[in-house]
């Protein structure tokens, strides 16, 4: 039987990719952020997950406003990153796991979600960069199979935090009922508080970020008290990317404990965070 070993939650700022490319991990500006990954690296080496289910948001690589899905689930044999407009590409391709993708799609449609099913799908920096950070030592190919799940954080109306959490729960039910014996890690990328546009560009909210991090493991439903617009106001217009965290956390349906947390300001315009949560099957008393 499959197990959901845990969840990795992290920012996905494009500049991180450039810092990696330039070898700046030990640079004083970047070190405090990259240092937050050591526990994740140790944990991944110990757990060796076979499958990565990654909740992220597309920034205009695979989706445009002609067909903008609320929830999109990849069901391809494999995925590539491509040029998003800045001439950066060349990330290693990601092997897919279409049989698990379809199992998830069957479950979520059964549970009255309305996904867009994607048998071809490019994945952008919001997936590529967290993967580079989590598995920095893989030379040839990735040691996992990928199911990418994109949540709309671009076009209002966004799905509510509650809807995203329930969507994640449904994905989690699919993972639990998957008959394979794979070990699965989930990931939620984006955030924390930041805002790129408008007169409020540069907005950061330590208090709200701390509230989210404090509750992510022990009481994620606390994060559902706000609407997506509330979060835009609290955490900035790109702070709503925490919807990906909320969905990923929803997919962890066992007993969840926080293994590590790193929170550092600033990375680019962003309050950057990395958290590692472990998931154990709930043991009945």
């Amino acid at each position: 039987m499959s197990t959901i070993a845990g969840g990795i939650f992290t920012s996905h700022v494009p500049g991180i990719g450039q810092a990696i490319a330039k070898g700046l991990k030990q640079d004083p500006y970047w070190k405090p952020f990259f240092d937050g990954w050591h526990t994740v690296h140790d944990w991944l080496k110990r757990e060796k997950p076979d499958v990565l289910v990654c909740f992220y948001n597309d920034h205009g690589l695979n989706f445009f406003l002609d067909k903008l899905p609320t929830f999109a689930i990849g069901a391809a044999d494999g995925y590539r990153h491509e040029d998003e407009g800045w001439g950066i590409s060349g990330y290693k391709p990601y092997p897919g796991m279409p049989e698990l993708s379809w199992h998830i799609i069957e479950q979520v449609v059964h549970d009255e979600f309305d996904p867009t099913m994607c048998q071809k799908m490019l994945v952008d920096h919001a997936l590529a960069i967290p993967v580079e950070m989590a598995w920095p030592d893989e030379e040839e190919s990735w040691p996992f199979k990928l199911v990418p799940i994109a949540i709309n954080t671009v076009q209002y109306p966004l799905p509510s935090p509650k809807r995203c959490f329930e969507f994640g729960r449904s994905v989690g039910r699919a993972l639990e009922s998957w008959p394979g014996d794979e070990k699965i890690v989930v990931m939620g990328t984006g955030g924390l508080s930041h805002q790129l546009e408008g007169e409020r560009a540069g907005h950061i909210n330590i208090e709200y970020d701390t509230f989210c991090m404090d509750n992510l493991s022990r009481d994620p439903e606390a994060l559902l008290q706000h609407s997506s617009l509330d979060i835009a106001e609290l955490a900035g217009s790109q702070g709503v990317e925490i919807l990906n965290w909320i969905a990923a956390r929803g997919a962890m349906r066992g007993s969840v404990t926080e293994l590590s947390r790193n929170y550092h300001i600033p990375i680019s315009n962003t309050a950057a965070a990395t958290m590692l949560l472990e998931n154990h099957e709930t043991v009945l008393a």
Partner: peptide
């Protein structure tokens, strides 16, 4: 939300051409 541009349907309609160009 002061200083913040909520990209809703109205904005999307006004901005379709510029966003399509940027895409």
């Amino acid at each position: 939300i002061p200083g913040t541009y909520v990209f809703d349907g109205d904005a999307a309609r006004r901005g379709f051409a510029i966003n399509e160009m940027c895409f």
